[in-house]
């Protein structure tokens, strides 16, 4: 019986918290009304007293701002951490697979693969060896030069495929553009950019332009679209190389002494 009264009291308290009046609650339990009423009045006084305690709106806003800024910071950190972790995992995985390919293929096979072209059996060994070489290339300028060598290699492969009248795979053109882009990204972020690397980039993009412009006239119409895309990308790359050249020119231009106008 006692337990039932506790339940009734609890139901009435829920109703009072929600805004019902004491009288409304007592109507539901007329037999227990006399016992319930004083307890509900004490509860109502407590609810009223606590509801008049209000936080300052300016503090509430400030604390909210602090909380949401902390959330934003944490989300940013987590994204950077995941990206870094993923990028390192990917790099190690690529290098590991490449080392395994080289070990399985043997050193002789790797040297033999140097002259292979896309579509040849040994071509994957050649690209695996390049991945290993890239993994162990350190320093931004060295890395940029490495990507430029790869892009030049892809251009040479393209010339050979044309000479041998073989199909030009889309992946070869994409690899050439992406290696050129990698070199540009690294050089653009380099604060002590050297003239030599920029000249090399200009030479590379100019060669790409010449070869692709000649090629677009020769290839069948079905292949023209992909060559045109590669040409557009190489023109963009040439534009960026010119900007870098300009940047190097400004930083290397000797200052004129005011006493010798």
């Amino acid at each position: 019986m006692k337990k039932n009264f506790d339940d009734m009291l609890d139901i009435c308290l829920d109703r009072i918290v929600r805004g019902d009046t004491i009288e409304q609650c007592l109507e539901s339990y007329p037999e227990q009304a006399a016992e319930l009423e004083p307890l509900l009045r004490a509860a109502l006084a407590t609810v009223r007293a606590s509801s008049s305690i209000e936080p300052r709106p300016e503090f509430q806003r400030l604390a909210k701002h602090q909380l949401l800024s902390t959330i934003e910071e944490k989300r940013k950190k987590l994204t950077v951490h995941r990206k870094t972790l993923w990028s390192w995992q990917r790099r190690w995985a690529v290098a590991l697979v490449a080392v395994l390919v080289i070990l399985l293929a043997g050193v002789g096979t790797v040297s033999a693969s140097a002259s292979s072209l896309p579509g040849d059996t040994l071509y994957p060994v050649k690209t695996a060896a390049e991945n290993v070489q890239g993994f162990f290339t350190f320093g931004s300028e060295a890395k940029a030069n490495f990507y430029m060598s790869l892009a030049q290699r892809r251009l040479n492969e393209l010339n050979k495929l044309v000479e041998e009248n073989r199909d030009i795979p889309q992946s070869l053109l994409e690899a050439m553009s992406s290696e050129t882009d990698n070199a540009i990204t690294i050089l653009s972020g380099n604060q002590q950019l050297g003239n030599e690397s920029v000249d090399r980039l200009m030479g590379l993009t100019s060669n790409q332009n010449t070869v692709l412009t000649e090629l677009i006239e020769e290839v069948p119409s079905t292949a023209k679209v992909k060559i045109q895309e590669a040409l557009n990308k190489s023109e963009d790359a040439q534009g960026q190389a010119l900007l870098l050249k300009d940047k190097v020119g400004h930083t290397e231009r000797p200052q004129v002494s005011p006493s010798h106008p």
Binding site: P55, Q60, L68, I71
Partner: peptide, 22 residues
């Protein structure tokens, strides 16, 4: 850590947590 959910929970509970602590 969805900011919208946190903002919603904050708005709903801040005054109540404050009253309890106060």
């Amino acid at each position: 850590r969805d900011p919208e959910t946190w903002a919603e929970v904050y708005e709903k509970y801040f005054p109540r947590v404050y009253r309890y602590i106060a």
